[in-house]
Amino acid sequence: MSTVNLVYFSWVRERIGKGEETLELPADVFTIADLLAHLKTLGAEYEAALEHENVIRAAIDQEHVAHGEPIAGAREIALFPPMTGG
């Protein structure tokens, strides 16, 4: 088990119903893709937020990463939709 801080933004935050949380992750969660699969087992709100995994963007310690990125050592993992600033 490892502990990680998760932060959510935009409609990912709204659908999950919270902006941040700290979770204990099972030992078989190695990558962002594993994390998304794990979160979707936690309830309907996570399933709704992460239904279309291909559009979900991720950042580890405030840097963009791909879904294959290992999460070992991450302090903060962010999940959010495609960005619409500017």
């Binding site: 935009s10 409609w11 950042a59 963009h64 959010f80 939709p81 960005m83 600033g85 500017g86």
Partner: peptide
């Protein structure tokens, strides 16, 4: 700078309508 800012700086826009109805998140 603008082209990369729009697609990789973590900002999200939500619309609030003039009629007071709840708006939508702007799509990328």
């Amino acid at each position: 700078i603008m082209d990369f800012l729009k697609t990789s700086a973590p900002f999200w826009k939500k619309e609030h309508h003039a009629d007071g109805s709840a708006g939508e998140w702007v799509s990328a």
